[in-house]
């Protein structure tokens, strides 16, 4: 299995290269190019100073040459460069923000799974009945719900009016090491992210379960007199979990995208918040770093999903 994981990790390197090349090209080829970016952070400079800075940062070179230096720096020194905004190493900036994003995504995935899997299975068992219809309708509504809107609504109701939860941020003043306080701040963001991802998971689990329920071995299980509960939990669920696990990997890009939005709305100091503010500040190296780390997260998520796949289904071998 270790060999399999190693092969997969090696195999994902070209993928990451393609991702970074695309990002670099998009940024480098954009009208005005990166040099135009300096227009904002370098206001008040004389033209000569400006030229000097552009040359210093290497922005006068074509994008592929810049990309080459960026890659060289990454491979040889493990460095993603320095932020244009505060000159701190990009890696340090991102690592400082990563925990919040991971907590948000992790907790909300757990919450979503805990609710969506039983709901999806039950809806499949009761297919066409009232419960199924209601849950399916709710799923469609939740699917169309803009994450930022839901976030704003929850803030308005539960933070502004009811005052049950804090408005924004990840910790109260002077409480940065208090775990309960941190969780308290994460409740609304996690609920927001879970609500919008619930729809896909529930629908997926439902159709997977319906498919398995039609399989001959389920009929056999019923025929030999097993209770409904045993048939569903032991025979159906285990088989119907497989497609859902695949979704775990597939949904990561959208989860990360959603998390970025939520961080923005709730002012959570995570990677997405850093990303959006860096984009606005034209902090080129930080944006590049976040793109790379996001891609690594996605690739790692897919790998974990594949490994989990085999853990649930002994028929699958790594080879």
């Amino acid at each position: 299995m270790i060999a399999y994981a190693a092969r997969r990790i090696l195999g994902s390197i070209p993928l990451l290269l393609v991702i970074t090349i695309i990002s670099y090209a998009l940024m480098g080829l954009s009208p005005g190019g990166p040099a135009a970016i300096l227009g904002q952070s370098a206001r008040g400079m004389t033209p000569i100073q400006r030229e000097h800075l552009i040359a210093l940062l290497g922005l006068n070179r074509p994008w592929y040459v810049q990309y080459f230096y960026w890659l060289q720096n990454l491979v040889l020194h493990g460095s993603l460069g320095y932020s244009y905004v505060d000159s701190r190493p990009v890696i340090a900036k991102i690592l400082g923000k990563l925990p919040v994003t991971l907590e948000l995504i992790g907790l909300s995935t757990l919450l979503t799974l805990a609710i969506a899997i039983p709901t999806g299975v039950y809806a499949a068992v009761k297919r066409g009945r009232a419960f199924d219809e209601i849950v399916t309708t709710l799923a469609f509504v939740a699917y169309g719900m803009p994450v930022f809107w839901l976030g704003i609504l929850l803030i308005d109701v539960f933070a502004v009016h009811l005052r049950w939860f804090p408005l924004s941020g990840i910790s109260s003043l002077g409480q940065s090491h208090n775990l309960l306080d941190r969780l308290d701040h994460l409740v609304l963001p996690v609920v927001t992210l879970s609500t919008v991802s619930f729809a896909s998971w529930m629908r997926y689990q439902r159709s997977a379960t319906i498919e398995v329920l039609g399989a001959p071995f389920v009929r056999t299980a019923h025929a030999k007199g097993l209770t409904n509960w045993t048939v569903i939990v032991k025979h159906t669920l285990r088989n119907a979990l497989l497609p859902t696990i695949t979704l775990l990997g597939l949904s990561l890009p959208s989860l990360i995208g959603g998390a970025y939005f939520i961080e923005y709305v709730f002012s959570l100091p995570g990677m997405g918040y850093l990303g959006v503010t860096s984009v606005f500040a034209r902090d080129y190296p930080t944006v590049m770093g976040i793109t790379l780390i996001s891609a690594v997260l996605v690739v790692a998520g897919n790998l974990l999903a594949d490994i989990a796949y085999a853990a649930v289904d002994p028929r699958i071998r790594y080879d």
């Binding site: 993928l15 998009l26 954009s30 939005f261 959006v276 976040i290 996605v298 690739v299």
Partner: peptide, 25 residues
């Protein structure tokens, strides 16, 4: 298809924001 995989592997929304903001258009 590898290119498609690559483009699917990163949060395209973030990419759109980046392109929008950087092109300044």
């Amino acid at each position: 298809m590898r290119t498609v995989d690559a483009m699917l592997s990163f949060p395209s929304f973030f990419l759109i924001i980046t392109v929008e903001a950087l092109t300044n258009s």
